[in-house]
Design a protein around this nucleic acid. Sequence first.
DNA 1: GGATGTGAATGTCTTCACAGCT
DNA 2: AGCTGTGAAGACATTCACATCC
Lengths: 208, 208
Amino acid sequence: MPKHIADSTVRRLSLYLRFVEEALGRGLRTISSDTLAALGGTTSAQVRKDLSSFGSFGKRGLGYPIPDLVERLRDILGLEREWRVVIIGAGRIGSALAHYPGFSQHGFRIVGVYDNDAEKIGRSWDGHPIRDVAHLGRDASREKPDIAVLAIPADTAQATADHVVRAGIRAILNFAPTPLRVPDSVTVKTVNMALELEGLSYALAHKR
Amino acid sequence: MPKHIADSTVRRLSLYLRFVEEALGRGLRTISSDTLAALGGTTSAQVRKDLSSFGSFGKRGLGYPIPDLVERLRDILGLEREWRVVIIGAGRIGSALAHYPGFSQHGFRIVGVYDNDAEKIGRSWDGHPIRDVAHLGRDASREKPDIAVLAIPADTAQATADHVVRAGIRAILNFAPTPLRVPDSVTVKTVNMALELEGLSYALAHKR
DNA sequence: GGATGTGAATGTCTTCACAGCT
DNA sequence: AGCTGTGAAGACATTCACATCC
């Protein structure tokens, strides 16, 4: 097991897991790096490198045994346990995420929903009471959330992230269109839809 | 102007644009690679490399003139013109995107909303009538959309993407949690929230 | 002096190609 | 024969460091 696994590798492992789970559901017994590569839009060498980072459990001449592979990938990705998630920003994005297929399926459980809008606080949101974000620290010491989803505007994102970090939460999924500064002990993934759109705009503007 | 600009570079350019626009709004005149690097979470050398790919328009000893930089970046990213967007899948994700600040601000205009659910077709969605996705080809020849946003489940995503490609649309923003196969002439960006969450899960599971 | 622009060095990720196991 | 596992090569991206210019 190497010191460090690249982000891009982890993303591919998640993809493989999805395909392998599907193959498992169809009752298949083994799957080859070639097949996984075709499904995941990569190459067989890449698949083998990715998987061999964590030990060799494929069978030469046959491929990877599917039940083993599912278990191994779920284990590597930390999906054998349940992660406790708070959503900060009771708006459309958080709602979309909460309804994402695979959110609860893959062990992500919403344990709290927060907002800073007095109009919203106290109301119900997809079955969860909306709490005041000012109480996050107090609640967190009791409920020990693992992940905070920031679904709020850019201008309050950094302050809220600081708040989240102080509450002892060590992972942030950031939908605010701005990078966040956090200590090394905290992991952030930013999903910036504006960047994706502008990437498409760039491609359209420059493509022959 | 080099043959090819990396995706990661384009993403950073989008970020820089956001910061420079903000600086412009505050009436600043120039901005240094150091300042941009701090805002964007990168290094000054990286900023200079990124910008110099498109010619040199910084002033040594001063930094980059902000109005020029805004214009140049908007031009590079293709944001001087309006892009016509269709949203396929009249659900929460599409709705969240449509309300994203900067969507219309940055020249992305929704020209059609589609679904395949007979219950939804004909209803109104954020002021747009929901149309039958079966009519996309016919509509597209008239309305010439540039970008299709796929906000639909994984199992129909590839077939819908094929449909979109046949309709002559050359850019896809894919929120379905699966990679898409499209011809080289079509650009796809996939936003897979499950992958981001699992990336956090991985980090939490492995961090000391 | 202060900040850019850029070749060279470094670091990281991907692809190749083939030995080795089943 | 078929397919994995993996060093070595190659491609790509980032960082360094310094000459260059305002």
